[in-house]
Design a protein around this nucleic acid. Structure first.
Lengths: 165, 165
DNA sequence: GATGTCGTCATCCTTTCGGATGATTTTGCT
DNA sequence: AGCAAAATCATCCGAAAGGATGACGACATC
């Protein structure tokens, strides 16, 4: 991946050097600048396309990742079986260590959990018998502590850290 | 498809004209040819990459299910955290049955997944090389099909239904 | 009694989301 | 070639969310 950038730079430098050189030697014609530009443009566009294809190509043959990618292909869930990913039949135990060293209070976590369940601030406020402003404050603080800018991000982070089921 | 070539030509022409113009007006400096060339090269390489990505983008047909590579993001967890909720070491296999009988398209699911990862519409738009409006449309449709009013709710539903990891 | 944390509420302002709707283009299938 | 589904983009508008900031009371702790 890094090699491509290198190649890119190299080819770029060589090309420019070459073109500049040839310009002063052989291609001294009318509108040489346009020709020059067009040449560079076309070449680099082509190179860019190639690069774009190469760096985003799906690896079929390289080592570890492939194996798994192929395997999952046949994993089809039978019929209309809902059986959807039972989140946890076991009562969830939040990671208190994480919670503490992030300084997240119990109330904030409580509200975060409701956020994760898809409730709006108003719904949370009603459910907890507090004002919407309060919910927003708790949210803001929790988001800040989690380094999240959006509630979806906060939820994601919360799950990663084991704070949420 | 044809339009891209057209755009390519147009942008090319405009760019060259612009550069040529500016060269004679503002950029009259030493080595202006190199600067000029480098500029053209970089711009066209970028454009080429974009074009390459765009014209070769995979369309997932109904027959052949192309699976996306799962990028396992490593999260730094301070020491004593007991490896909570390993996101998925196994590539996630979405519940295609649920997806189909809800009428959720591949693209919608793709965007839903990015929503679940906490990205804003704008970020998603940039990542997928589409406009923010498009993302919003996909979101709206997905939310509708999921019976969700908010993105957090959609994510929650998606996970319940096994559509999201 | 001073200090600090937590929960509560507020206001102002900006950004983001979401709903409704219509249009165009691309693509898959017949 | 033509149709249907999907994808793309747009605009308008209201609602929700988020940032910044200040304030106040309860409670624990030193």
């Amino acid at each position: 991946m890094k090699r491509h950038v290198l190649i890119f730079g190299l080819v770029g430098g060589l090309l420019i050097a070459t073109l500049q050189y040839t310009e002063y030697r052989f291609v001294i014609i009318e509108h040489s600048v346009e020709v020059y530009g067009a040449l560079v443009a076309i070449l680099f566009a082509a190179f860019g396309i190639w690069l774009g294809l190469r760096i985003t190509r799906r690896r079929e043959t390289t080592n570890e990742i492939v194996r798994e990618t192929v395997v999952v292909k046949e994993v089809l869930v039978p019929a209309e079986a809902p059986a959807p990913f039972v989140p946890n039949s076991v009562p969830f135990a939040p990671n208190t260590t994480q919670q503490q060293n992030l300084g997240i209070t119990a109330r904030e976590l409580e509200i975060l959990a409701l956020v994760a369940r898809g409730l709006s601030n108003r719904e949370i406020a009603n459910q907890l018998f507090v004002s919407e402003n309060t919910v927003k404050t708790h949210c803001a603080r929790a988001f800040d502590k989690l380094g999240a800018a959006r509630r979806t991000q906060a939820v994601q982070r919360g799950k990663e850290l084991g704070l949420l089921p």
